[in-house]
Amino acid sequence: MGAGCQVNRNRDAFANGIRDGFPIALGYFAVAFSLGIVAKKAGLSPFQGFLSSFLNHASAGEYAEFTVIMADAPYLEMAFVILVANMRYLLMSCALSQKFDAKTSWVHRVLVGFGITDEIFGISVGKPGALNPCYSYGAMVIALPGWALGTVMGIVAGNVLPASVVSALSVALYGMFVAIIIPASRKNKVIRGVIAASFLASFAVSRIPLLDGISDSMKISLLTVLIAGGAAVLFPIGEEKEAAKTEAAKTEAGEPD
């Protein structure tokens, strides 16, 4: 009976992940389309573009990759640039691993960490209670192919579409990300304050000339550590309160103890 219930929970979590990941896939397709145009300028074939986007799930990281390719730079430089551009995902993976049940195997943690993106992290960390890895898998299985296929279509289409149209399509992704953080901020004033502080700090950092030499990903990583760490120190969540929230989430979802 217990095993059967667990299978049902995993299946439901996977289906919910696909449902929540579908709009993300649409946004990814639009953004990756513009990346595909850059990839074509760098000389990548549709298959190479698909493989690149399937293994690298970040617009900034891929853009940096294609820029390095066009500059005919060595592989070591490319690896370093991509590492710096995608550094913030290390923080996201560590943060999301705390959402798993303590019994969750390291295999699930590694696989979920591989597919982390800003939006998938947002919907996964926003789930109440302990996170079922199958939910993240469901979001990944629909969203990540959308990212890779968008790159392929951009390479195939080339410069057929006007740049203004491609730019307009990419706005959908930012609107979707706003839709992820707004509900959480309305329910929790601490989260609301953290989001406001993040916006202000990001704007301030972008205007400081001394920091122009630091990549955007590094800036985001540093701000994430400072702001999240400050919020954790000033507004800690006690174990009893967190346990009560988890229990309430299970009750709402109809899950057994």
Rank of each mutant, 00 (worst) to 15 (best):
16 N>K: 14
121 F>K: 04
23 P>R: 00
28 Y>S: 03
46 P>Y: 00
203 F>N: 07
11 R>E: 07
144 L>F: 11
164 S>M: 06
28 Y>W: 08
204 A>G: 11
180 I>C: 03
147 W>I: 08
151 T>L: 10
155 I>A: 01
42 A>S: 10
62 E>N: 03
233 V>M: 10
70 M>S: 13
155 I>E: 00
65 E>A: 14
31 V>W: 06
7 V>I: 14
27 G>R: 04
190 V>R: 11
179 A>S: 10
137 Y>G: 07
216 D>S: 13
128 P>H: 07
4 G>M: 15
36 G>E: 00
193 G>H: 03
197 A>D: 01
234 L>R: 01
137 Y>T: 05
153 M>Y: 07
58 A>D: 05
156 V>G: 02
107 V>R: 15
124 S>H: 07
150 G>N: 03
21 G>D: 01
141 V>T: 13
191 I>P: 13
196 A>C: 11
91 L>Q: 10
129 G>V: 07
226 L>S: 08
95 A>W: 01
151 T>M: 10
110 V>G: 09
119 E>T: 13
106 W>S: 14
155 I>Y: 00
79 A>I: 13
47 F>Y: 05
97 S>P: 13
95 A>T: 04
10 N>G: 11
117 T>R: 05
229 G>I: 06
165 V>Y: 00
209 P>K: 10
166 V>E: 05
181 I>F: 05
196 A>P: 12
170 S>W: 02
210 L>R: 10
